[in-house]
């Protein structure tokens, strides 16, 4: 798992690259926490275009980050999910809390 991020005009863009499962969950959680500590953004967009695999452990990681940012009134959006990721999001209802944007 590799995580890249940049802030542009108050939006924090996060790119997840690789596989998000139990093995990479801890690293992903810690790294996202560090990135989210930055004070200069009002919205987060998580780009999944380079995420090769994800299972429900990844959903747990994303929901955890959503809860943390919700307390600061910062919304998270998902963009570029694979067909596979989209299927998991629909089953788990993740889009109800992290809407998809094009």
């Amino acid at each position: 798992m590799q995580i890249k991020s940049r802030v542009h005009k108050g939006v924090l863009y996060v790119l997840l690259c690789g596989e998000l499962d139990e093995h990479t969950a801890s690293y992903t959680r810690i790294t996202l926490e560090e990135i989210f500590d930055k004070p200069d953004f009002k919205k987060v967009i998580i780009d999944l275009s380079e995420l090769d695999f994800m299972d429900s452990t990844g959903i747990g990681v994303l929901i955890g980050r959503y809860k943390k940012l919700k307390s600061k009134d910062i919304p998270i959006y998902i963009t570029n999910p694979s067909t596979h990721a989209e299927k998991i999001f629909k089953i788990t209802g993740l889009y109800d809390i992290m809407p998809k944007i094009v």
Binding site: R29, D55, S56, T57, I59, G60, V61, I63, G64, I91, T92
Partner: peptide, 8 residues
């Protein structure tokens, strides 16, 4: 932070 969705 488990989703509880594994079996689902």
């Amino acid at each position: 932070e488990r989703s509880g969705m594994g079996f689902t």
